[in-house]
């Protein structure tokens, strides 16, 4: 090992990182050469004084906060699902999902109830005026005499405990149902001077 090679290794002898055969060769050369020892003294002194120079304070906790924000942004970009979830605070997130689920269930229950209520006791009139009726009620297609007032018809139906549930069609036909006894209702309608024609619906 020549002088230049030895000098190139001296900084690493000074900082204690030189090992093995190279360290042994430098130690031997130091033992034999005063110039090299002087060079080592200079490097040792330089290293010590460099380490004693005050550290300029870095960004500290502010830098850490900045880093943590950048890390969070990084993770959100990498995982859009997490991004969507974390747009809402975790405690809000859980509560909101529960509220939305409960509201959806309630809405479904109300809608089902309304639908059942509307279809259970009422007959439906299809677009072609064909009657779809419940099994327990009889219904009649009725036309009233000309000049019959609405008040007179209403008074008659109230007495019979009947009601108009459809019509009038283009031909002036009403769909009437009700009464405790369908046969009696039919008779009453047939015998009324207000009724012009009557026919059992579906026949």
């Amino acid at each position: 090992m020549n002088r230049k090679e030895l000098e190139e290794l001296l900084p690493f002898f000074a900082n204690g990182s030189l090992e093995g055969r190279e360290r042994e060769e430098v130690e031997k050369a130091l033992h034999d050469c005063s110039d090299l020892r002087e060079e080592l003294d200079y490097l040792t002194s330089l290293r010590r004084e460099m380490q004693e120079t005050a550290l300029e304070p870095g960004p500290g906790d502010l830098g850490l906060k900045r880093l943590q924000r950048a890390m969070a942004d990084e993770d959100l970009r990498a995982d859009p699902i997490t991004r969507a979830q974390t747009l809402i605070a975790p405690e809000q997130n859980n509560r909101l999902w529960k509220i939305v689920a409960a509201a959806a269930c309630l809405l479904l229950a109300i809608q089902t109830g309304l639908t059942l209520h509307m279809t259970r006791d009422r007959d439906l009139v299809a677009a072609g005026a064909q009657v779809v009726q419940s099994a327990k009620d009889a219904a009649f297609l009725v036309t009233f005499a000309p000049q019959t007032s609405e008040a007179a018809i209403r008074e008659m139906l109230v007495v019979m405990n009947a009601e108009i549930i459809g019509g009038p069609s283009a031909l002036g036909i009403y769909l009437v149902t009700g009464g405790d006894d369908p046969a009696a209702t039919r008779d009453a309608l047939e015998n009324s001077s207000l009724v012009e024609t009557i026919q059992e619906a579906g026949k």
Partner: peptide, 12 residues
């Protein structure tokens, strides 16, 4: 290299 050797005591 000087700082890494003398501040951080790294090997070459």
């Amino acid at each position: 290299v000087l700082e890494l050797a003398f501040f951080e005591d790294m090997s070459y």
